[in-house]
């Protein structure tokens, strides 16, 4: 007969893991009590949600001219902001790369990039709406700043990872600084740069439909006012337009990605 040996479990959970779980549960209990999220409120909301769904459908496309106008404006904001932001990122990213530039230049530039990244685009949009007034211009500036924060950071990181042998080889031929960049650095990071840029174009397209909520042009403003006027069937129409725009954008960026591999 086989005897059952009472071995110790070799994978016992450590004490710190147990404390982590305990802490998590204590936090959850605390958060639920402070936030006043009740079950009855949730149930009440579900009832409300049913009524909302009822009013959301069918979508109302009677004001399609306004919808189309805003859709085009969103598209324009996304395209201009992406091209401008990516173009600026080329230089900013190069200046932020620690292996290409002395600390005197790279540190302030890195701080600038970090500043661009910390704030959510909507907060940047609020500041630009104050500075340049309502409309597409505020949206363009906002998304340009957001693009710099993302593309320049990743571009700088890509440049920092390059092999320096090619750069030295180009330098050894007596090439100047610009030739070194163009023939030694850019070819090594070009395909990754294209990748970041496509990603950013995609995310600018998404964000351009949102910055309008604070008045920076595009579909967001119309969406927000439709919500405030309880125009829920028009809301559905706008949401469908946004989803269509994003799906088309995704398909196009996949195509471009395939062309550049």
């Amino acid at each position: 007969m086989a005897t059952i040996v009472d071995r110790q479990n070799p994978f016992k959970t450590s004490l710190s893991t147990k404390f982590l779980w305990l802490g998590l549960f204590v936090y959850l209990a605390y958060a639920f009590t402070t936030l006043d999220i009740g079950w009855d409120r949730f149930v009440l909301g579900l009832d409300q949600g049913g009524r909302l769904l009822d009013r959301l459908f069918p979508p109302n496309f009677t004001r399609w001219e306004l919808l189309l106008h805003d859709l085009i404006e969103s598209l324009q904001i996304a395209i201009i902001a992406s091209v401008a932001g990516i173009f600026i990122s080329l230089f900013v990213g190069l200046m932020a790369a620690r292996n290409m530039m002395p600390n005197v230049i790279s540190i302030p530039v890195r701080v600038f990039i970090a500043l661009c990244r910390t704030f959510h685009p909507v907060i940047i949009a609020i500041l630009f709406v104050k500075a340049v007034g309502f409309g597409a211009l505020a949206g363009i500036l906002t998304l340009t700043v957001a693009s710099i924060g993302f593309v320049a950071k990743l571009f700088a990181e890509a440049i920092e990872e390059i092999s320096f042998k090619q750069v030295e080889a180009i330098r050894a031929t007596g090439a100047g600084f610009i030739s070194t960049i163009v023939f030694g650095v850019i070819p090594q990071v070009f395909s990754r740069f294209i990748g970041f840029s496509i990603y950013q174009l995609d995310s600018n397209l998404r964000n351009s439909t949102m910055v309008g909520i604070v008045g920076a042009g595009g579909l967001g403003g119309t969406l927000f006012s439709a919500f405030q006027r309880f125009d829920y069937d028009f809301v559905t129409a706008i949401l469908l337009a946004i989803i269509a725009l994003i799906l088309v954008g995704e398909a196009l960026s996949n195509l471009v990605r395939r062309i550049f591999q």
Partner: peptide, 10 residues
């Protein structure tokens, strides 16, 4: 060319 912005605001 087509976007509606007011350059003076910039």
């Amino acid at each position: 060319r087509t976007v509606e912005i007011i350059p003076e605001f910039l």
